[in-house]
């Protein structure tokens, strides 16, 4: 009996918190920040940010992207943490690719001391500039359709 009471109490508490966060997301969201995952790296991002990616990456200039691997979103009054990624119907991060270039010539030198093994390479990698346009948050926290892993 005592365990059931505790479960009911926790449910009620969590529902109250969810309602409060939903209200925070609807009322005046203000500036948002997010942590997004691109090519194995995580970036903390605000609207109008610039991100550089030093790798061969197919998207070209003027392409518009939606980043769906959002690990965390936050405003001035709330934060949502994904486990590990937030569902798509809650957050979306938009960005455009502005500029593609090559980096400066990097020196890649490899040697094993006391043995005649050495390798010298000069490398210029591809550089991609991403501009983050917008972070959008949808107040759908209590609506858990098609999301199985959140509640079991």
């Amino acid at each position: 009996m005592a365990i059931n009471l505790r479960i009911i109490y926790e449910e009620r508490r969590s529902r109250a918190i969810i309602e409060k966060v939903n209200q925070c997301m609807t009322d005046n969201v203000g500036r948002l920040f997010a942590v997004i995952h691109i090519l194995g790296k995580q970036y903390r991002v605000v609207a109008q940010d610039i991100i550089l990616i030093e790798r061969n990456w197919p998207p070209n200039v003027n392409d518009k992207l939606i980043f769906e691997k959002v690990l965390l979103v936050g405003g001035s009054s709330f934060t949502l943490i994904g486990k590990p990624v937030l569902p798509k119907n809650i957050v979306e991060v938009f960005g455009t690719i502005v500029h593609k270039d090559l980096t400066h010539t990097k020196i890649r030198y490899f040697n094993i001391p006391k043995e005649r093994v050495h390798n010298l390479n000069f490398v210029r990698e591809e550089l991609t500039y991403i501009r983050i346009n917008d972070i959008k948050v949808y107040p759908k926290l209590n609506v858990l359709e098609n999301v199985e892993y959140l509640r079991k």
């Binding site: 940010d49 610039i50 991100i51 070209n60 500029h99 270039d101 400066h104």
Partner: peptide
Amino acid sequence: TRVGIKTIRFRKLQHTE
């Protein structure tokens, strides 16, 4: 696709206001 910035060594790969 370039913007015309001179090639420099970047100290950070991100810029935020």
